[in-house]
Design a binder for these strands. Structure first.
Lengths: 198, 198
DNA sequence: GTCTATAAGACGATAGAC
DNA sequence: GTCTATCGTCTTATAGAC
């Protein structure tokens, strides 16, 4: 059993944030305990609280990091080309974010916290920034709208953990084929499964 | 102060179920206490547990009722006409369900509980039934997919409580106009607001 | 049909040591 | 930088009365 290394505060924070996105994504803001995250990051529960102040601040940090990774991915996808090409590349990047465990679901959970006095405003601002980003990129309103809607659909299918069902339930096979005409295999390969705790 | 009437078990169950959809929608499965629902329904907390067994079973009952109302609305919207007409009517009915407090958000929360051992399977089945309903109605896969995606988008905007922001934030005004070209006024009139507890 | 009282457990946060 | 111990609170569910 390897003994644990003493890390710098920043390194430890980064590890805990990664764990937080995974666990918050799987169990939601309220459903996640600071101890869940501590165990996922292999540190003690009080230390998580010590580093981030409160569970609420930890969630805000996880949301910020999630949005940072999202815009980073969008930046990679944006660039020269026709609208169709840009949209395809950005969709591809968004699917690629499935390698960040819990990212899509952390977004979904944040977007359901609209009535939370502290998290709600931050979540609304994040969503509005995504919208503004697409529009500033030159997406016409209707296209931006459809692109976002597809993203919410992917989030939902991930949150439902529908991927295993795609292999046994013909309805779900049909659904995946319709949603991801070109990237079905990638999505099925990267999507979290029912039996994964996170 | 009006004294409370003694109701039949079925009447009381129906009242509690309505309250449960509203509160679960606003605060989520884990974030809602049985006491929250009891107070919203004006009964004692142990009585809620008595009538529904456990909080988990109560959530399942609320989800069932939510899906029942959803299919009932779809049935009203379906019927004769071109695909475009049917889709417009069904979208209209789905927006009309905003009069049922918490319905869209209860769906969203259920759809994020994919890793829950009991609720997860029921949520997946509900989603698959919605998909199958659209396909059986004759929707081509691509159209059914886009329709569902728009629904997820509406759910997200409701969960975020974006409606107030539409009146002050130009980004959000633009977003609402793009998402609801014909029904923006209805959505804004029916959407829950930030300051509503549920 | 409905309530009050309460047991039993889980959780966030603090204190303080190393 | 990181841990152990622990307090106080909240929450589900049960017991039992009316």
């Amino acid at each position: 059993m390897a003994s644990k290394k003493r890390l710098s505060s920043d390194e430890r924070r980064a590890l805990i944030l990664t764990a937080a996105i995974a666990v918050f994504g799987a169990k939601g803001y309220v459903g996640t305990t600071t101890d869940d995250i501590a165990r996922a990051a292999d540190v003690s529960q009080p230390y998580v609280v010590r580093l981030f102040g409160t569970k609420e601040q930890l969630f805000l940090a996880a949301l910020d990091e999630t949005l940072r990774l999202l815009f980073e991915a969008f930046e990679r996808g944006a660039g020269a080309g026709l609208d169709d090409e840009i949209e395809a590349r950005m969709g591809h990047e968004y699917i690629g974010l499935l390698t960040v465990r819990g990212l899509h679901q952390t977004l979904s959970h944040a977007f359901l916290l609209g009535s939370h006095p502290v998290i709600g405003p931050r979540a609304r601002d994040g969503f509005a920034r995504v919208w503004a980003y697409l529009r500033d990129l030159g997406f016409p309103a209707e296209r931006a709208q459809a692109f976002l809607a597809q993203g919410m659909m992917l989030n939902t299918m991930i949150g439902l953990r529908l991927a295993d069902a795609a292999e046994v339930d013909p309805r779900i096979t049909d659904l995946f084929a319709a949603c991801f005409p070109t990237e079905k295999a990638t999505v099925l390969a990267l999507a979290p499964r029912v039996d994964e705790p996170w």
